[in-house]
Amino acid sequence: MTAGGRRSVVVTPCGDGGPILVRGADVIEDADGTAHVVTRPVVALCTCEKSQRLPWCDGTHKAVERGRRRREGAA
């Protein structure tokens, strides 16, 4: 991206079950060794492992968190 060399990859965790944001990567390799090509300027990697579109975040962590709070509230 920059004139003088390879762009760096920047990784930013969002915390609280949310995704990890990755900037500057071309490919994300998952635990099975499958390569997923990056087509966005920033991608969000799932960390809650509940996403239906792994390795990408699909916002399911929020539903997981809601369920947890509901159960805590009911307990």
Partner: peptide, 14 residues
Amino acid sequence: HIEADAVHEQLAFR
């Protein structure tokens, strides 16, 4: 938009 907006919500709010 499922994938895109899971990124965008983090960019926008954070």
